Computed example of a mutant assay.
Amino acid sequence: MTADNLVIGGMAAFSTVDYPQHLAATLFLQGCPWRCHYCHNPHLIPLKTDDEKVTWQQVKHHLEGRQGLLDAVVFSGGEPTIQKALLPALKQTREMSFRNGLHTGAPHLDLLKPLLPWLDWVGLDIKAMPSDYEAVTTSRYSGPESWAAIEALQKANVDFECRMTWHGGLHGPEQIMGVGQCLADRGVDRFAVQVARSDQMLNEQIGTGCISRNDRDTVRLALTPIFASMELRE
């Protein structure tokens, strides 16, 4: 398996938001084992695609021309950890002197652990409390390994933030605050709550999930004091 086997659904050549405080190129990898109701990239769920939009060689060519201009490469998805070609790709970008970032829900801890020595920063998607994952992902037993990834990242000394998508039809403010408190209790320093985008969702039957300004303010005020960094991203 080589990096050339990476199935890439798209690329953002320049991003200021995918890796905190760094300029990055972001790759959106195909494939995800979950079917989250609010998923706004449903076209990335299938692992295989008839239309190969971006090849690894095209990515390398782009990065070679941006050395010294970009700081990092972020591998997003979909769920990038399910692709075996991710590890050789991380090794190549590290050899090119780029920082490596990863966006993951960590559905399988054994797929994440071999990547840790090659990662500089991780955005870990936490969907809910472990027992409530199925209501979001529609996949049974999908919570415990994601939460176990927190300790794995801490032990590997990989910089990370936890983030949670908030859809008003799936989570009330009490649930968001409960997840935040549990993360803080586990030593998480940075937490970001992202309001779900309703313009394109896998399951439109859940509605827009509007969240009142009062609920947003309640969550922000409750969680800000318990984290070194807490953001409500709207």
Rank of each mutant, 00 (worst) to 15 (best):
residue 119 L to P: 05
residue 77 G to T: 12
residue 52 E to L: 10
residue 159 D to T: 06
residue 50 D to V: 00
residue 148 A to I: 07
residue 71 D to C: 07
residue 133 Y to C: 10
residue 222 A to W: 00
residue 82 I to A: 08
residue 125 D to N: 03
residue 169 G to M: 04
residue 18 D to Q: 14
residue 191 F to W: 03
residue 123 G to H: 01
residue 212 S to N: 09
residue 135 A to P: 02
residue 187 G to R: 02
residue 221 L to T: 14
residue 129 M to D: 11
residue 201 M to W: 13
residue 162 C to A: 13
residue 37 H to S: 12
residue 209 G to I: 02
residue 183 L to R: 00
residue 11 M to N: 06
residue 93 T to W: 07
residue 30 Q to I: 05
residue 75 F to A: 11
residue 118 W to D: 06
residue 185 D to W: 01
residue 85 A to L: 09
residue 141 Y to M: 13
residue 212 S to Q: 12
residue 81 T to Q: 04
residue 151 E to R: 14
residue 194 Q to L: 10
residue 138 T to I: 00
residue 178 G to E: 03
residue 232 L to G: 07
residue 130 P to T: 03
residue 36 C to L: 13
residue 52 E to V: 13
residue 50 D to G: 01
residue 202 L to E: 09
residue 180 G to I: 02
residue 83 Q to L: 12
residue 186 R to N: 09
residue 131 S to Q: 13
residue 172 G to D: 08
residue 47 L to N: 06
residue 177 M to F: 00
residue 182 C to F: 01
residue 119 L to G: 09
residue 167 H to T: 11
residue 127 K to L: 05
residue 233 R to D: 06
residue 28 F to D: 02
residue 163 R to V: 08
residue 160 F to Y: 13
residue 152 A to N: 05
residue 102 L to V: 08
residue 48 K to T: 12
residue 115 L to Y: 01
residue 35 R to P: 05
residue 64 E to N: 10
residue 221 L to V: 11
residue 5 N to K: 14
residue 115 L to S: 02
residue 48 K to R: 14
residue 45 I to E: 07
residue 85 A to N: 08
residue 35 R to A: 14
residue 70 L to N: 05
residue 121 W to K: 00
residue 74 V to C: 11
residue 231 E to I: 08
residue 122 V to G: 04
residue 231 E to M: 09
residue 161 E to D: 10
residue 131 S to M: 07
residue 23 L to H: 07
residue 106 A to R: 07
residue 39 C to E: 06
residue 199 D to L: 13
residue 65 G to M: 03
residue 190 R to D: 09
residue 154 Q to A: 09
